[in-house]
């Protein structure tokens, strides 16, 4: 089975985000970038399927600026077989990304597509579902367990209040939640090997997709800061403050 995985280049999750002083956006100049953590889980899941003999080939795709090739190389070092870079310096919204990916899916015909449930920059949580709609494929978002049996994907999902299990016809789209797996680190030999794995570059025009803006970012501001309050000395004092000062109990 061919598995397609997507990875997004985002700010490293350990880096503190700062808003630009003109409030036009966040400041990404000279900050460390990495694979979006949920995408890393997607890559890991695909690699485990290959190790289990279920997946035969893993194709990893990224979209955006040329620098995102770094994240594709990381995915190749983690075990993906080849990479496709859809390169553009234009800002890509989720719907456009989904349209571009739909073209890649049409060309590659994977049986399973694994994606992160959301990117930690825009926090949209949309692309997997949009790709599913555009390709007419079934979806299981927020996956915490994935099994392939009898020509179906059996996926356990993290939903409000518990877990839900769905059965999907293949091909299908699965988006990852945190507990699906714990990604490995790439070993040095694998990082070296990844440099020789194939990486194809395409443009949105090659795929016949027009990059269109559906939204306009008007401003980005830092969140309101919360002020630290007071320290109390005892449980009595705490209960008294909550009852008589804050009046919340």
């Amino acid at each position: 089975m061919k598995v397609l995985v997507t990875v997004k280049r985002v700010i490293d999750y350990n880096v503190k985000v700062r808003v630009k002083s003109d409030n036009s956006d966040v400041d990404l100049a000279n900050v460390k970038m990495a694979i979006n953590p949920f995408c890393e889980i997607a890559v890991e899941e695909a690699v485990r399927l290959k190790e289990a003999g279920v997946a035969s080939e893993i194709v990893v795709v990224s979209l955006g600026p040329k620098a995102a090739q770094e994240q594709l190389r990381t995915a190749l070092a983690l075990g993906a077989d080849r990479a496709i870079m859809v390169e553009t310096d234009e800002a890509l919204e989720s719907l456009t990304v989904a349209k571009l990916l739909a073209k890649v899916v049409e060309e590659e015909q994977p049986e399973l597509i694994i994606m992160g449930k959301q990117a930690i920059d825009s926090d949209n949580n949309q692309t997997g579902q949009m790709l599913a709609a555009l390709t007419g494929l079934p979806q299981a978002t927020f996956a915490s367990e994935l099994k392939l049996e009898g020509g179906k994907a059996l996926v356990t999902r993290e939903v409000d209040g518990g877990l839900q299990t769905l059965s999907l016809n293949l091909p299908a789209i699965v988006t990852t939640d945190l507990r699906l797996n714990e990604p490995r680190y790439a070993s040095l030999p694998n990082i070296m090997k990844a440099k020789r794995k194939p990486l194809d570059t395409k443009t949105p025009a090659d795929l016949g997709v027009e990059v269109k803006a559906h939204t306009q970012l008007l401003k980005v501001e830092p969140p309101a800061e919360r002020q630290a309050g007071i320290k109390v000395d005892s449980v009595e004092q705490l209960v008294d403050k909550l009852k008589n000062e804050a009046k919340v109990i």
Binding site: S94, N124, N125, M130, Q139, R157, V159
Partner: peptide
């Protein structure tokens, strides 16, 4: 919610519009 997050982007794509999340 996890329900809304699950089906709404599909709606947006079918309508060929963006979704503004959360």
């Amino acid at each position: 919610t996890t329900t809304g997050k699950n089906f709404m982007p599909r709606v947006a794509a079918l309508l060929d519009v963006a979704q503004i999340s959360d």
